[in-house]
Design a protein around this nucleic acid. Structure first.
Lengths: 349, 349
DNA sequence: GGAACGATTGTGACCGGTCACATGACGCCC
DNA sequence: GGGCGTCATGTGACCGGTCACAATCGTTCC
């Protein structure tokens, strides 16, 4: 079943004749290079007859302005590099999508550089900076957050983060959603439903060091404490995926006291759902489950997953606006478009 | 619940003092700019004492080589732009991930440009080309495929496509998986299970025009015809998502003759599964369902989804190698790493 | 008729690197 | 001790654009 294939480039010997430059066009049109520059930049003071001649030369020579030379000479880059530890998880992918849309709308080109624990952060950052333009960081995890901290102070950047920045150093411009409040609301909702306590399966966090808790965990804990119940030990925290959720769900399913579970994201919830099903515990009959993020598949699971909708794309758009404000001195950032979070109740709770 | 926020850049008045250039470093170290160039390029013929002095100057001035100037002067870009109509659907995201990994490993920077039906393809392409470097196209859909066709012949590019290129014009270098054979195998498997026919819910396709069929549809049709059964009318073809699958699944669920459904991807299958569940038809008891792609959630659905695993990341890696071969004259492309397709049988069939 | 002005066009420096080549110092050999 | 090769370094052009400024021309105005 591997009749897959690939075609090789056709090597028809023709050397890749160098692209035409503005001086080539000038020569062909019988004008100076500066006049060509005026034409391609739509400068008003060019005689119609001249403009037409130059445009004809541009057409026949297939001239395209060299973006590298333009960037070097003008100092304008209109490009942005996104630093992120992941591109496929729903939250990251959706944020990236929002960033890309905003960048494209503004005429910026977008670079993506994935961060890995193996490679040297400082080297990565400096190579991204050397590319010109600004930096965007998706800081939902430790890797992203520490990349953000290491960006030199004079480099324009903006970030999407898990938690509002705090601390001694001047904060990097950033946007964030109120995850803590969202988790608190979801937990409170479960308690109102009559559950005596709510268990939590955590996603990894970007905040603090060691075993400190993410904002979603903090919100969950706060809701329980407000209701006077002692929070059980939170689970997970080492992975974002369904397998991790399944593993934790198996343990939780064995405990008949467990009747409500909040999950740090929808993939974990998916795994938890599956584990509960295997253990013969019905959802929402025996156990209520609420996820986080409202990934595209959440509403089509059986049972349909209750979850907290996050406007990752809005976050991405707003972060881009923040960066653009630093790159273009006369740019007036528009009002944030972030839509907030929303508890979406479906069948699983 | 919208106590979200964003911090603005701290404007501490200090003008963004221009970055140090190689000549600034030269002056500080008391050498010529060319010597500095030698040091940063690790040229052997530099006295140790001089090298140290220059390195010290680089350190104190915080010099970083300007990538734009480097690209202009050397003609080497080491950058690649990916043209794609989507970044979040599993197939696209996974391919992109493969591309990114390969690009990063090779020291290339990666740009992403999303194609939309609204904007002018030629303009998009020429702005991507102007950025220097090569072009990669993800051609799983009409938009991507037509972008690929419009790339000027002298621009280095490579693509990941749905179907092997054919036709009069010299083909662009491309990689693809054998979707047709994979669909045929999946359909044949369902027939072997005893189903009298197999229905198909299609994804959009990149091939042909109007209502022509994608490769997965062709494989499904071929398997049925080989078995001597007249293929029913295929469904869908207008969307990739679970909602589309749900809509088509509702219609299929109403027909008691339907006992086996092949879906063009796992999201469609998810919707179909949900619709069957709503209609009270059990899977796999009453109806068998097989998806396509093996998205991360497929194995955790209830019932766990049988599907065709695709090595999108391998496809991405191989396509990058193809492009790199064009960009670096002395680069010897390694053997393709694409792992082929595999029918993964789980609970839904 | 000439000064003033705006429109049109050209000239040369510059952005921050690289490249090709020149220069001077040194060691080695015959 | 002169010729030669190698090392270490400097000089100036160049990549393909932009920018600041100068030059030329035709109008208009007094």
């Amino acid at each position: 079943m591997d009749v897959t294939g690939h075609t090789r480039p056709a090597d028809h010997g023709q050397e890749p004749r160098k692209a035409a430059s503005i001086r080539d066009v000038a020569r062909a049109a019988g004008v100076s290079h500066q006049t060509v520059s005026r034409v391609i930049n739509a400068h008003p003071n060019v005689r119609d007859e001249t403009r037409t001649r130059v445009e004809a030369a541009i057409e026949t020579l297939g001239f395209r302005r060299n973006a590298t030379a333009f960037a070097l000479a003008s100092g304008v880059t209109r490009s942005v590099t996104v630093l992120t530890a992941n591109t496929t998880l729903y939250g990251y992918a959706a944020t990236l999508q929002g960033l890309e849309e905003a960048a494209r709308a503004a005429g910026y080109s977008l670079g993506v550089r994935v961060l890995t624990p193996e490679d040297d952060l400082d080297r990565t950052i400096s190579s991204a900076v050397a590319g010109g333009g600004g930096l965007m960081v998706i800081g939902f995890d430790r890797l992203g957050a520490s990349a953000l901290r290491r960006i030199p102070a004079d480099v324009p950047c903006a970030a999407v983060v898990e938690a509002p920045p705090h601390g001694r150093r001047p904060p990097r411009p950033a946007v964030w959603a109120d995850d803590r409040e969202a988790a608190r609301a979801a937990t409170a909702h479960l308690l109102r439903l009559g559950h005596r306590t709510v268990h939590y399966v955590a996603i990894p966090t970007s905040v603090g060091t060691g075993r400190s808790e993410g904002l979603r965990a903090q919100g969950w804990r706060a809701a329980l404490e407000e209701a006077g119940v002692t929070p059980p030990e939170p689970r997970g925290g080492n992975g974002w995926d369904a397998q991790t959720g399944y593993d934790e769900g198996e343990r939780l399913a064995g405990d008949p006291e467990v009747t409500a579970i909040l999950c740090g994201n929808d993939d974990l919830a998916l795994g938890v759902l599956r584990a509960l099903h295997h253990a013969g515990r019905s959802v929402p009959g025996d156990v209520a489950v609420i996820g986080f993020d409202d990934a595209p598949h959440a509403g089509f699971l059986t049972p349909a997953l209750s979850t907290v909708r996050m406007d990752f794309q809005g976050l991405g758009r707003d972060a881009f606006a923040l960066l653009r404000g630093q790159l273009e001195s006369d740019y007036e950032a528009p009002a944030p478009t972030f839509a907030g979070t929303e508890l979406v109740l479906r069948e699983s709770s």
